[in-house]
Design a protein around this nucleic acid. Structure first.
Length: 280
DNA sequence: GGTGAACCTCTATG
DNA sequence: ACATAGAGGTTCA
């Protein structure tokens, strides 16, 4: 087995993609929508709901992708160091709510809010002799009051969460349609949801809707671009406006190619680890 | 079209 | 103890 084939689950889970995962002995357990997954260190998945989903994106041609995104010294280094890290294919609704919750927040707080939300609005299940709370169904959050949602510690984001859930129920957002649609179109659609801007949209597109050219630009990525790519991606304004975000994204895809999202994940992981941030 | 402020909440820092 | 800054952003004026 060539080493790029071997997954590093810990690095994968702790790379800012998912928030409701924990390690129990040699297994990782995580809530994924209306399902709970158990993954062994070697990457074998057991699904509570007996779903067959390619959660670890095992059908991606990693050899080709890693070769294609290794366009410069920085990415080559990041890819080499975190070779076993993968992008995950998450439940779209959970992913959407997670990243609406993430805005102007931090990992610990996002985790705590999502755990509270699952506990309050999700169904309790038993899997492998452990208790889990599934992620709330869209109807449940759509019917909840703003104050009930606020009690999960999400603050002003509560109304965004309710509205996103509501639009999902009413099929104003249709994830299956967005999966089939192209990047630009899917992004425009998803940005119509209040609380969803460029960054949150790109996270949802990359982590749950298979848009591998998404390249979420948050504070960290901007910092990384300034540090390693100041020659390639000159920032034209002080703050990243809607227009600048688009221009920057185009330059990024021109440089990294159609799998730019993978490069983002490696760069992000490397920089975070360099700063030795606690993920918890 | 770009800028700056406000926004919930929690934590780290002084 | 208390104030202030900052955090995987977005919206509004």
């Amino acid at each position: 087995m060539v080493d790029y084939c071997k997954i590093n689950l810990e690095n994968t889970i702790n790379s800012g993609q998912v928030f409701l995962w924990k390690q129990i002995q040699n297994n990782w357990f995580g809530v994924n929508g209306q399902d709970v997954l158990r993954i062994t260190d070697s990457g074998k998945i057991k699904s509570y709901a007996k779903q067959k989903i390619d959660f670890l994106r095992e059908k991606d041609n990693l050899e080709e992708i890693l070769r294609m995104i290794s366009k410069d010294k920085t990415t080559r280094q990041a890819v080499k160091k975190y070779l076993g890290m993968r992008l995950l294919r998450q439940d779209p609704f959970q992913c959407l709510i997670s990243f609406i919750t993430s805005s102007n927040s931090n990992i610990q707080k996002i985790k705590s809010s999502l755990e509270k939300m699952s506990k309050k609005f999700g169904v309790k299940v038993k899997f492998d002799n452990q208790e889990f709370f599934l992620f709330p169904k869209p109807e449940k959050l759509a019917n909840a009051s703003i104050n009930e949602i606020k009690s999960c510690g999400v603050g002003y984001r509560a109304r965004f969460i309710k509205e996103a859930a509501n639009r999902t129920v009413l099929e104003k957002i249709n994830f299956e349609y967005l999966k089939k649609s192209n990047y630009q179109n899917a992004k425009e659609e998803i940005c119509l949801i209040p609380g969803v801007g460029n960054k949150v949209a790109d996270c949802v597109l990359l982590f749950s809707l298979n848009k591998l050219e998404s390249f979420p630009l948050d504070r960290w990525m901007i910092r990384i671009l300034e540090k390693y790519y100041s020659d390639k991606f000159q920032l034209e304004t002080k703050t990243i406006t809607e227009k600048q975000y688009g221009i920057l994204h185009e330059k990024i895809v021109n440089h990294f190619g159609p799998y730019a999202g993978y490069s983002q994940q490696f760069l992000f992981k490397m920089e975070r680890e360099n700063y030795q941030k606690k993920w918890l």
